[in-house]
Simulated assay, not measured.
Amino acid sequence: MLKLSILDQTPIPLGSSAQEELENTTKLAQIAERLGYHRFWVSEHHLETLGHSSPEILIPHIASHTSTIRVGSGGVMLPHYSAYKVAENFRLLEALYPGRIDLGVGRAPGGIPLATNALQEHKHTYHDTYEEQIKDLIYYLTGSQDPNHRFRGLKAMPDIDTKPTIWVLGSSGGSAGLASSNGISYAFAHFISGQHGGSVVSRYKQSFQPSEMQRTPASMIAFFLVCAETDEEAEQLATSIDVQFLQVAKGEKSDGILSPEQAIKYPFTPTDHQIVRENRNKMLVGSPETVKAKLETLSEEYNTDEFMLASIMHDFHAKVKSYQLLAKAFGLKD
């Protein structure tokens, strides 16, 4: 049986506020747990159209309002930070909510260059240390036993018996290679690239080297989701995300996610329609039956049993219904 998980980026619809949408994210996590979803992740994006950029702060709030669902980051943009501090944050989260914490990490900046410059203002080096940072995370989260590490003996506290699961997020062979060579989990961001990554995931599994973190490979694939009672209704709801992505691609200012009624009035050009068609490769749009069939096919193509789904809609109730319909179609929980 497929495992379904949720990534909520806390997008702010036009007319709403960050505070309201943060409340909705918490409500959605509680609903996801009742419906039988496997994980609930929150993201780091330094953008005005999203409700937050600090998953390490939102995770404990969500975990405290749920009881069984795994909670994690999708993801922490590691190059901005000290691997040691990230390890301390997530060791503490694991101590507070043992067996429920995922540490998803990514290389991307997660925002505009101005935000990146501010985040890295006092860094003395700007060369790529991402691979070293991942190794450092493993070092700190597994007890700091490597006698050759440059910070030999330094432990990330608290000193506990369990550890969060590390997931490398990416849409390329490079990130998959980092995950496989370090023996950690890999999440392929189909919803970012729009390109089929079956060969990337296959190479990750074939090249996987068992580690102190885990003995066997684990993969998941991420898509945007728009699910409704019918294919026609889903197509209508999807116009909101179509326009949002289009505005990002064109560098247009957005005051929030538009309703489908507002989005359909956007002055699309022929080029815009082409961009929309290309962006649809990042999404699963349709009725529960349509989306279920697509996921089952993708599961075979990717040879994976877990999908991470993100929904961007103007109406929170439509978003909730989207996840409810899919959970019912898969029989996640009666």
Rank of each mutant, 00 (worst) to 15 (best):
S219N: 07
F224I: 04
S43L: 05
Q209N: 14
T49E: 12
A95V: 06
V226D: 03
R150L: 12
S175L: 10
I12S: 00
G256H: 05
I6W: 01
S17G: 11
Y323T: 08
R280A: 15
A234C: 09
D146S: 10
I221F: 03
Y140H: 09
L47D: 04
A176S: 14
Y266A: 05
Q133L: 06
P210I: 01
E232S: 11
H149M: 00
G99W: 10
T49N: 13
E278L: 15
V71Q: 02
A249C: 05
K3E: 15
L298V: 01
R203L: 12
M157T: 14
I6H: 02
T269F: 06
V76E: 01
H46S: 05
L284V: 05
G72R: 02
Y323L: 13
K250D: 04
S54V: 09
V105N: 02
R70C: 11
D146P: 07
W167A: 00
I264A: 11
T304S: 07
K135F: 03
A29L: 07
I241M: 11
R91E: 02
K328L: 10
H65N: 15
S144Q: 00
K319C: 10
S73G: 09
D231R: 05
S181L: 10
Q244W: 14
H273V: 13
L154I: 10
G74W: 02
S219F: 00
D161F: 09
T68L: 12
L295F: 02
A108E: 07
Y323A: 09
Y81L: 07
S144W: 00
F307Q: 00
A189F: 01
S67T: 15
A83T: 03
E300C: 08
F40Q: 01
K135I: 04
L258Y: 09
E233G: 05
R277E: 15
F151E: 15
H127C: 09
Y81G: 06
D255E: 14
R203V: 07
V42L: 03
G183Y: 05
A238Y: 08
D231S: 07
A32M: 08
E300I: 10
S199E: 15
N24D: 13
K3S: 14
L225T: 03
E94Q: 09
S207M: 15
R91S: 12
L154N: 00
G286S: 06
G183N: 05
Y37N: 04
K292C: 03
I101M: 07
S5W: 02
D255C: 04
P79M: 06
I241L: 11
V200Q: 08
G194R: 01
T304G: 04
E21Q: 15
E235I: 08
T269E: 03
V226E: 04
D8A: 06
V248D: 09
I166C: 06
R150C: 05
T26K: 14
T25R: 02
Y81V: 04
D8V: 04
A87Y: 03
A218S: 14
D305C: 08
